[in-house]
Amino acid sequence: MFALSADEWQALVLSLRVAMLSVIISMPFALALAWLLSRRRFPGRLLVEALMFLPLTLPPVVTGYALLVLFGRHGWIGEWLAQFGIVFAFRWSGAVLAAAVMGFPLLVLSIRAAFDSVDRRLEHAAETLGASAWRRFVTIVLPLSTRGIIVGSVLAFARAFGEFGATITFVSSIPGETRTLPIAIYELMSLPGGESGVQRLTVVALIVALAATIGAAILGGSLWGRRRDD
């Protein structure tokens, strides 16, 4: 029977919530950084790009450890944040942070490519019509980059949904709090008789990944179809 147990449902719902929130929270930062990299030349740009790529190039466990050092209860930033009641370590919010960090480079890369492809001459036209830099961004650059933003969001969502190494290192595996779907699969694999659970969750992961990708292709494709240049 393909019926998920209560624990499995919990892991699925948590994973969906963590992945969605990670994309939503990182979006403003990704938009700002993508715009900066696409439109501005500044000293240290290469370093910023290299730092942004780190979660892609580093082993996820190392990223998780770095998050622990920075945002753990006694971490450099974590200790300071704790004064305001903001705690990431061993909380679901920490899983969101880990997922956001891991998906961030994919989000920025897609959005930046979309920004790069917007015809700068349209922005010049808007400028002569009195539009400020902010208005040009909101009314020209952003709408013409919709497809890239959607693709980036799906990639980041998929990366966040499948995130394992950084999450388990940073927030461990606490049922209902930080035990996401990949962690649940990993734990079921080491349990006697856990194989059927592994299979069920694997099928679920496959369905979510396919649904996200197909949904993005349909939405992105239809936008692309409407957006033929003049």
């Binding site: 001459r121 036209a125 002569t128």
Partner: peptide, 19 residues
């Protein structure tokens, strides 16, 4: 700044906003 010059510019290629 260009945005403050109050010019109306008609470009050779129109440059209408496609969206």
């Amino acid at each position: 700044p260009s945005a403050a010059r109050e010019v109306g510019y008609v470009f050779q290629d129109g440059r209408l906003f496609p969206h």
